[in-house]
Design a protein around this nucleic acid. Structure first.
Lengths: 345, 345
DNA sequence: TTGAAAGCGTTACCAA
DNA sequence: TTGGTAACGCTTTCAA
């Protein structure tokens, strides 16, 4: 193992000088810096992480807490993880992965053993039970999602309330008077996952304001559940002309099922998806969508964590990204009932 | 911060005793152990990771190198990551995530800075370019996938050659004489991803042995690509009766497209998927499948890494899991051409 | 602009 | 069965 002493010897300087060349925390003559850096490269020196952490109380590691469940959309989680990783590396940090399953005790462990400098937590619930533990941690924490009472927590997320609202507005402006939300699985609601409730609230509120008949139906990520959901929807609500789908996993099956039932998109029924861009583009019918900016969120979360690390001021901040709706043609103006009746089944 | 000295003081013993209670590396009187453990709990002591790593040259961290690309199936990667995490925690290890994008230099960095004790590497290529670096690392390494020349590397994977072979056997036994493989995206083949080539080889070899007409068609994960692929397949090869799908992302769209084209599964065409169990069960038509045991692989990879850490013997090992085929009814006996011709289009 | 040396919190060796 | 203490490799203060 190459140590800082080896480099120092090779460069004919003291270890502290090598350290300062690396950290840039004091000025070094150009001449010395060059010699040191050449030795570093020549020897392939990388500072020992443990020693560095011990001496500086900085690990250069970010802990990322992800859900293991699959009722949360997996590609979205992955996009988020990827963005976090990439951005963290840009800040010369590594990412340690933890599962939500480890619970509060896991969080305490990470903090107490100084394994990471900061925590990024996904899958936040409305009544987030980890909040008190996280608050007591003394580590910078960034939540992806917004609990009902964020307190001093730093949060970042898509403004799902605004997204729910925007979805209704879009359809209402096209003349739809009867729409339905196909939401995440019941388990997601039951767990009180923060984004699900917020979206639903925005959806309902704007529907009421626009005097639109709006129903909502959670849907498990299986074909059977979807079929059931549609059966119920179309019988209890045969005049529905617009679907808002806040459930990425079900998009493909939904389109197939609509096809099977002879409903054309958007002629017979409009479909507005809430999902990452690439997913909206990957279907048989490109989908008008409100984007879930998973990558941007991951990137932002890292930046916010870094800012907290730098400033050390407990400046809390709740950052909500405005929803962006892209029309890809899967939503359209309502066709009158008469007209529809004329078309062959 | 609570240190080992605090615990020692509280328990009225020396720091080394606390350390030994924790590590179990020497015998401690029941009485002392209890006192120490009570102090540990009372103070909420967790050993400082950096200090521990420095003193023991063990980080209790596993580095997991994952691909960021999305042409590899995301849910499969995620299942794998989840299993790795869970198993690692069972061994009291944490998992550090790295991206393939960091390249060989990233691997060197991890090793040289003693950030992790062992490396688990996904998305292995047939002519794996990282092999020489990995070999020089001195860290235990486990590859998920098998390069053409594994050398001294420890590898674990599904036996994709046998899987390719089994897929043909299954269809051949049902009487199919003309089948096609819908494979991963061309990018995956071009990159030389290890499993893709191995599956194809097994597929072709057994098809030849069974004297079956077998074509193969890589398919990008988009609806358009799929349509094109099917168009070409059915025109160049109108008598095809069996499809082997080694491309999880395309399964849903494929079933829709077959439906749209009036092909019933399995009456008109048999479909055999190569994918994780849950995916095979989640479609409109439950799919006969050869399972990709992502979770098992993740779990095994960790165990193999741990074994290497324990033994310190460079015992290399290539472990291939036998493919398991589950019939879920999406494959069936071939219906004669005459009979088919009678059916309405 | 640089060097010397005192920690950082553990582990593990040497004694007892 | 236990305690004392020298490492481990780095950062950072204090001196020069």
């Amino acid at each position: 193992m190459v140590t800082i002493a080896d480099v120092a010897r090779a460069a004919g300087v003291s270890p502290s000088t090598v350290s300062y060349v690396l950290s840039g925390k004091r000025s070094i003559s150009e001449e010395t810096r060059r010699r040191v850096q050449r030795s570093i490269r020549k020897l392939g020196y990388h500072p020992n992480a443990g020693a560095r952490a011990l001496a500086s109380s900085r690990t250069n590691v970010l802990a990322l807490v992800i859900p293991l469940r699959t009722d949360l959309n997996v590609p979205v989680v992955m996009q988020f993880v990827a963005a976090t990783l990439t951005k963290a590396r840009a800040y010369d940090h590594d990412v340690l992965l933890m599962t939500k399953d480890e619970g509060p005790e896991g969080l305490r462990r990470i903090a107490a053993s100084s394994i990471a400098d900061a925590l990024i937590v996904m899958d936040v619930e409305a009544a987030e039970p980890r909040l008190s533990v996280l608050g007591a941690l003394r580590l910078p924490v960034v939540l992806i999602g917004v609990p009902d009472e964020p307190g001093e927590m730093t949060c970042v997320d898509l403004d799902f309330t605004a997204a729910g609202s925007a979805s209704v507005t879009h359809l209402a402006d096209l003349g739809h008077r009867d729409i339905a939300l196909i939401g995440p699985s019941p388990a997601v609601y039951k767990r009180g996952t923060s984004y699900a409730g917020r979206f639903l609230r925005g959806f309902r509120k704007t529907a009421a304001a626009r005097k639109i008949h709006a129903t909502s139906c959670p849907c498990s990520p299986s074909y059977d559940a979807l079929r059931e959901c549609l059966d119920e929807l179309f019988t209890s609500n045969p005049d529905v002309t617009g679907l808002v789908v806040h459930n990425e996993a079900i998009l493909g099956p939904l389109l197939s099922e609509l096809g099977r039932r002879g409903k054309q998109v958007p002629q017979d029924i409009s479909v507005l998806a809430v999902c990452p861009q690439d997913m909206a583009e990957a279907h048989a019918v490109p989908l008008t969508s409100i984007a879930i900016p998973a990558a941007e969120l991951g990137s932002l979360a890292v930046e916010m964590a870094m800012r907290q690390l730098d400033s050390e001021t407990g400046q809390s901040e709740v950052r909500l990204l405005s929803p962006k709706l892209t029309d890809r043609g899967s939503t359209g103006p309502v066709v009158s009932q008469r007209h529809k009746a004329d078309r062959p089944q």
